[in-house]
Design a protein around this nucleic acid. Structure first.
Length: 274
DNA sequence: ATGGTCGGCAACCGA
């Protein structure tokens, strides 16, 4: 079988309409087959589909709403089985999934998630946003477990802004972040259960040793994001065991944080020989 | 220890 490369990207764009030029620049430079976006902040009928179609991304799956949240999948490859899942009985637009076929005609199922950020106070009794985040992760665990037998050779990919930095070197200071939402032990444990539920492989950490720091997000609030470098690894690409076998490499486009009027997240790309 | 900045959308909410 011919070795073909499949490139899947994920990016929390923080308003796709405001940053459509950055999306176009990213697609031209890195040419993923499929781009998964989070925080599109737009109703589906205002999604900038035309600009993306001109670049060859003619297949688009949308789950958006006015003003908040929203996810999208834009693809050069035809998409089927477009599905959205409501979590925590909230119509938040935090998930969309599709199926597609690789150029070797292998079927793949792709899930795009935007996990709630969880607010500021790391106590679910006092902070309903944190309670929502934990409930979402719990439902995501059940959802992931229901996807089917991970060992059954089904090729699946799960990407997104999962809003949890699980490992010590996924944050700039493990000690100082232990009671900061995104790195609290309770969230890390919840995300770990999702990973276990489907034997997901964390592709960034399949490539970058756990001893090495790696980030995908830098706060807007820093005076100089690059100088302070207080980042977090919030954006993830996971693969089912069958998919992970064809994993080639991860790229994190750090320089995108320095682009004009940037998102606070940078794109992450996974390449597969598939 | 605290406050710091964004985007949507038109006063604050969500991040």
């Amino acid at each position: 079988m011919a070795q073909m490369t499949l490139k899947i990207a994920s990016w929390n764009i923080n308003s796709v309409r405001l940053r459509i030029k950055l999306v176009e620049a990213f697609l031209k430079a890195h040419k993923p087959d499929i781009l998964c976006l989070q925080e599109t902040k737009t109703p589906n009928d205002l999604f900038p589909a035309k600009a993306l179609g001109r670049l060859g991304y003619k297949h688009i799956a949308l789950h958006g709403k006015k003003g908040y949240h929203g996810v999208a999948i834009v693809s050069k490859l035809p998409l089927g089985d477009i599905m959205t899942q409501v979590f925590c009985d909230k119509d938040d637009c935090r998930h969309i999934s599709v199926s597609f076929r690789t150029r070797n005609d292998e079927p793949v199922e792709l899930h795009n998630f935007y996990v709630p950020a969880g607010g500021d106070v790391p106590d679910a009794d006092e902070n309903p946003k944190f309670a929502h985040k934990l409930a979402f992760l719990k439902e995501m665990d059940a959802f992931s477990a229901r996807l089917g037998d991970a060992a059954a050779d089904k090729k699946r990919i799960l990407v997104g802004d999962l809003n949890v930095a699980p490992l010590e070197n996924d944050v700039w200071s493990h000690r100082q972040m232990l009671d900061v939402i995104s790195h609290t032990p309770v969230e890390v444990e919840s995300l770990g259960r999702v990973v276990k539920s489907h034997e997901w492989a964390d592709l960034t950490r399949a490539q970058v040793p756990e001893s090495e720091k790696v980030y995908t997000w830098w706060s807007y609030r820093a005076r100089d994001w690059q100088a302070s470098n207080r980042g977090r690894r919030l954006d993830h690409i996971w693969a089912s065991p069958a998919m992970a076998r064809s994993f080639d490499k991860i790229e994190i486009i750090r320089e995108a944080r320095g682009w004009k009027q940037p998102s606070d997240h940078v794109p992450i790309l996974a390449s597969f020989e598939a």
